[in-house]
């Protein structure tokens, strides 16, 4: 099943009045259960492409279909609701809410969906147990290591059972062992739950894990190959 379809995406930024062509004529289709890495040098448009896929940014031209729905026709509130239900985000800087504990950070995404407290607690415990981070439940982000925070961020991203996880340089702030562990975890989630993972990264170990590797250069898709089954 196709979860993302991009048609002729163009993105032009204005950088102090100077137009910057970040994406040029991107056509792309992502299917359910893919483990895709978008690679490329800095400034190639990886993050911009990921933001467009995640409905965080709007293209200058072209159409974005998420689960076969044209998101350009949706209001800001509808896009927020769509992101909440269908998409999960993992950021380079973890971006947990500093005043909440790990458990509360995971619960927060469920609260936004209106899930009642008891069910939130149960589901958060279940996810934490699956990711092996139960002992972090009562800790706040400043009491956790980078790797631990990123695991909690992954838990937050998957807790609402989204169909797509978008991870922007998720290992950039982690040492290689921690990064490898995180990728193991994500691969497991992909395998066990058929979750779609889309990474943007220039980290070798992330690229090596890719099942599908898309290389970007100057906002264009340079190559798109299935590297693993």
């Amino acid at each position: 099943m196709e979860v993302i379809r991009l048609e002729q995406i163009e993105k032009i930024y204005s950088d102090n009045g100077v137009p910057v062509h970040a994406l040029r004529g991107i056509d792309l289709r992502i299917s359910q259960g893919e483990f895709t890495v978008i690679a490329g040098p800095s400034g190639s448009g990886k993050t911009t492409l990921l933001n467009v896929m995640g409905a965080l940014d709007t293209p200058t031209e072209g159409t974005v279909f998420l689960e076969n729905e044209d998101i350009s026709e949706k209001s800001r509130a509808e896009i927020s609701a769509f992101r909440l239900e269908k998409l999960g985000f993992v950021f380079q800087a973890f971006n947990l809410i500093p005043v909440l504990t790990a458990m509360e950070n995971i619960e927060f995404a469920m609260m936004l969906l209106g899930i009642e407290e008891k069910h939130r607690r149960d589901r958060a415990r279940e996810i934490m147990s699956e990711l092996g981070i139960e002992e972090l439940a009562g800790k706040r982000p400043n009491e956790m290591s980078g790797g631990q925070q990123q695991r909690v961020a992954v838990a937050r991203a998957i807790v609402n059972n989204p169909s797509i996880i978008l991870a922007d340089e998720p290992t950039a702030n982690l040492d290689s062992d921690t990064g490898a562990n995180l990728l193991d975890l994500m691969e497991k989630m992909n395998r066990d739950h058929n979750l779609t993972f889309i990474f943007s990264s220039h980290d070798r170990q992330v690229i090596d894990r890719a099942h599908r590797l898309i290389r970007l250069t100057d906002g264009r898709i340079e190559s798109d190959e299935q590297v693993k089954q």
Partner: peptide, 16 residues
Amino acid sequence: IREFGVLMAIGMKNAY
């Protein structure tokens, strides 16, 4: 600002 950005990215509506 960054925190609000994250909250909005994960689906927090403006009303929240």
